[in-house]
Amino acid sequence: MLFVEHKTIHFARAKSNEEDHDNGDIDPVIIKKVSVHDKMAEEMKLSQIDGESLPLGSHPFERKQYYSQNFSMSPKFVTNKGLVKIKGKNIDFVQLLQRN
């Protein structure tokens, strides 16, 4: 996922000649690449939940089955998008999966 951030920078202009005026009003567009689980961890912090995003593939849960297949319509092919470790709650992790 890509998140585009528009950042306006105001340049202090000592000289007000025409050349400076042309270069000074450019609004640079900064593109931040944020993984989905990092974004989720940030949103959790806003809700007063202590969540820390783990590096992709660092936990054994990410290398096991994600569904028990006891329910019908359980997907077979999914992509792991990351794990967020939760502290101070009964839930231990939040995992994000993408459908294939």
């Binding site: 994600y66 999914v78 231990d92 995992q95 994000l96 993408q98 459908r99 294939n100």
Partner: peptide, 15 residues
């Protein structure tokens, strides 16, 4: 026509 779709599943895991 294949590859990951734009749908996500959020799993709350109790260890």
């Amino acid at each position: 026509p294949y590859g990951p779709l734009q749908y996500y599943h959020v799993h709350f895991i109790l260890e």
